[in-house]
Design a protein around this nucleic acid. Structure first.
Length: 400
DNA sequence: TCTGGGGTCCTAGGACCC
DNA sequence: TCTGGGGTCCTAGGACCC
């Protein structure tokens, strides 16, 4: 029997958190974002959207559109606490929850559904939505569907406080008329290309793939079947209520002013490296790769981002090793360009518990090449882990 | 005043091993 | 002389999402 998957999406979450903290903000043009010279809007209230403000817009531009715009700096610790309240509330209904980001999750409601008739089930979902609001003051939109993809598209369909059911037979009516840019996974680079090729709606996309339109077919390569499956309601429907480990930890920061002064950039970089290593060490993980990100200040190249990376021979959590290699990589990669942004990321992370390590990392300062790690990657015991950890992870729909 | 920052996944070319 | 082919890892870059 088909599954009943819910996707629950908190409406304008950061702004809503600010409104809960300070109800005087309700109904006003409010945005959460950076206030500095190079700040941008992260989220904004529906009132602010009436002025044409949207996320990703530079703050100064948003202020030009609405001079009364209230900018909140953003309190991410507080948002994380609210996010935990959200998940804890949903747990009253099911434990099959997969948190996708700070403000959204998938739930498998198949068992819940089986206890109710269809009509009663919708009432139950409505009750859950209202209950969340009463208990936490958070608003959410809910998509109900037999697959994750359709549930995700459903929660996006009607906001705020929407509930949208997309059964297989509803796909043509609900999704096909939508702009192709609404398709989850098609972003601002791909959508214009498709539109130029005459693919304007999700329906156009589906029929062109089905008719084996060669241009579109080649464009999507191996994903064409995934898209067809998603649009026929046959894609992945497993909700994995598992602990999802981060695969990378990093920080990037935009400088207040572009510069090519090596001493300034290096100082800035060292602060980033230290912060990233500190965050990493809290996670009980090992890493294998370090990466530096540079955003070139030259406008002609359109803020081109360059990365350089280096992998260690073995997984490590040695602060000394990572720090020393981070400096080396900087020295070998920085070419006196004018820099707008710089970042440092640790990649290829694995949980320490999953690896049996004979570590001699402490010897690093004596002889770095002597580090010998013997790794045995064990299969995660996913069942015993809880889903409270908040990490972005990806939708499994595209994975086959 | 002039476009952030946290991530994930995929791809392609080259190196290297067998 | 000439130079296969599979597999894996590393590196860099691109697209996308929240």
């Amino acid at each position: 029997m088909a599954k009943i998957i819910l996707h629950i999406d908190l409406n304008q979450f950061f702004v809503r958190c600010e409104e809960i903290k300070n109800p005087q903000l309700i109904g006003k043009p409010v945005a959460v974002g950076g206030e500095g010279r190079r700040g941008i809007i992260s989220t904004c209230s529906y009132k602010a959207r009436e002025y044409g403000i949207h996320s990703g817009m530079p703050t100064f531009q948003a202020k030009m559109l609405c001079k009364d715009l209230i900018i909140c700096k953003g309190d991410y610790r507080y948002y994380e606490l609210m996010s935990k309240e959200f998940i804890n509330y949903i747990r009253k209904y099911t434990l099959k929850i997969e948190q996708m980001s700070i403000d959204e999750c998938f739930c498998d409601f198949t068992d819940v559904y089986n206890k109710f008739k269809h009509e009663d089930f919708l009432k139950l979902v409505k009750k859950m939505q209202d209950g969340l609001f009463q208990e936490t003051k958070l608003k959410c939109s809910i998509g109900i569907a037999p697959t994750r993809f359709l549930a995700k598209m459903g929660s996006d369909y009607k906001k705020p406080m929407g509930i949208t059911v997309i059964r297989k037979k509803d796909i043509k009516d609900i999704l096909f008329p939508l702009s192709v840019a609404k398709y989850f996974g098609i972003g601002k680079k791909t959508a214009p290309k498709l539109e130029r090729a005459g693919i304007k709606t999700i329906g156009d996309l589906y029929y062109s793939l089905k008719s084996e339109n060669e241009e579109i077919y080649n464009f999507f390569g191996k994903f064409k079947d995934d898209i067809i499956n998603q649009l026929e309601g046959n894609s992945n429907d497993e909700v994995e209520s598992s602990f999802d480990f981060a695969k990378s930890i990093g920080m990037t920061r935009t400088l207040d002013y572009d510069t090519n002064e090596k001493t300034v950039i290096k100082q800035f970089y060292i602060r980033l490296v230290n912060n990233v290593i500190d965050n990493f060490l809290k996670e009980d993980m090992l890493c294998k790769t370090i990466q530096i990100t540079y955003k070139d200040a030259s406008c002609e190249t359109g803020f081109k981002t360059n990365t350089v990376s280096k992998s260690f021979k073995d997984y490590t959590n040695s602060k000394d090793l990572i720090y020393a290699e981070a400096l080396k990589l900087f020295e070998s990669s920085f070419k006196n360009e004018t820099i707008r942004l710089i970042g440092f990321t640790l990649k290829n992370l694995v949980p320490k518990h999953d690896i049996k390590v004979q570590m001699t990392f402490d010897n690093y300062s004596r002889h770095e090449e002597e580090n010998k790690t013997q790794l045995l990657i064990n299969k995660l015991n996913r069942e015993t882990k809880k889903t409270t950890f908040m990490r972005l992870s990806d939708l499994k729909d595209n994975k086959k």
